[in-house]
Amino acid sequence: MKNTFAPLLIALAMLALPAAAQADCFVEYKAKQDSPLRLHYGILAIGGSCPSGSQAASMAQDRLSAGGWVLLNVLGLSETTPSAKMKANAGDYYLRY
Rank of each mutant, 00 (worst) to 15 (best):
P7T: 12
L9H: 07
L9T: 03
I10W: 00
I10D: 00
I10K: 00
A11E: 01
L12Y: 13
L12C: 10
A13M: 02
M14K: 09
M14N: 15
L15Q: 07
L15W: 15
A16Q: 11
A16L: 03
A16S: 10
L17S: 09
L17W: 13
P18D: 03
P18R: 08
P18I: 03
A19R: 12
A20P: 04
A21H: 07
A21W: 14
A23L: 01
A23G: 13
D24A: 09
C25Y: 14
F26N: 06
V27P: 01
V27M: 09
E28G: 09
E28R: 06
E28V: 00
E28A: 08
Y29S: 08
K30N: 15
A31Q: 04
A31E: 04
K32P: 01
K32C: 09
Q33T: 15
Q33H: 09
Q33G: 13
Q33R: 12
D34R: 11
S35N: 14
S35H: 15
P36H: 12
P36Q: 12
L37S: 10
L37G: 10
L37M: 14
R38F: 13
L39T: 09
L39Y: 12
L39C: 05
H40W: 12
I43E: 04
I43T: 11
L44F: 10
I46F: 14
I46V: 10
I46N: 12
G47W: 09
G48K: 14
G48V: 01
G48D: 01
S49T: 07
S49P: 03
S49A: 11
S49H: 05
S49D: 07
C50Y: 05
C50E: 11
C50W: 10
C50T: 04
S52L: 02
G53L: 05
G53T: 03
G53W: 06
G53V: 01
S54A: 09
S54N: 13
Q55K: 06
A56S: 11
A57Y: 03
S58I: 09
S58F: 06
D62M: 08
R63S: 09
R63I: 02
R63V: 06
S65C: 12
S65Y: 14
S65R: 14
A66D: 11
A66E: 14
G67W: 08
G68V: 05
W69R: 10
W69C: 05
V70F: 10
L71W: 02
L71T: 00
L72M: 01
L72N: 00
N73P: 03
N73W: 01
N73G: 04
V74Q: 03
V74P: 03
L75M: 09
L75E: 05
G76V: 01
G76M: 04
G76I: 00
L77P: 07
L77V: 14
L77D: 04
S78F: 06
S78G: 08
E79C: 11
T81L: 13
T81C: 08
P82K: 15
P82L: 08
P82Y: 06
P82N: 12
A84P: 02
K85F: 05
M86A: 12
K87W: 05
K87Y: 00
K87C: 04
A88E: 07
A88N: 06
A88V: 07
A88I: 01
